[in-house]
Amino acid sequence: MAHDTHKLEIFRGALKFKSNQQKIVGVLILLSVITAIEVVLGIIKPESLMGMVLGMKLLNWIFIILTIVKAYYIAWDFMHIRDEVKWFRISLVVPLLILIPYLAFILLVEGNYIYNVYLDGFIKWDF
């Protein structure tokens, strides 16, 4: 990576920084704000966000989405993925995007199945 080839815009170009240092501070502020939102939501747990969406509480979906947003900015700006060539980016991110949701999906479905076995089966507690 040459010295001055940083891409300096985030939010699809909506926010453009003058130098790499400024961009880092900008991303720091963004990450801190997101963390603050998460902590506040985690403490208050607003009643209105407790509805179930796709088998999980809406609040939990919000937490997971905010986490992925944070992960994106850490990887893209702190780890400089934004400045790498396109296919390097793809070879790093795509395996994770395929394998992690897949693993999470099968394990959570299986976990839910076992939960139901406990619920209406005769096994009482731990195994």
């Binding site: 992690i100 959570l108 976990g111 076992i114």
Partner: peptide
């Protein structure tokens, strides 16, 4: 990252189980 996702997915599995 895949190792950690394995652990966290296992955590999710046990949590869904109970």
């Amino acid at each position: 990252a895949l190792t950690f996702s394995g652990f966290l997915a296992a955590y999710g599995f046990s949590r869904f189980k109970f």
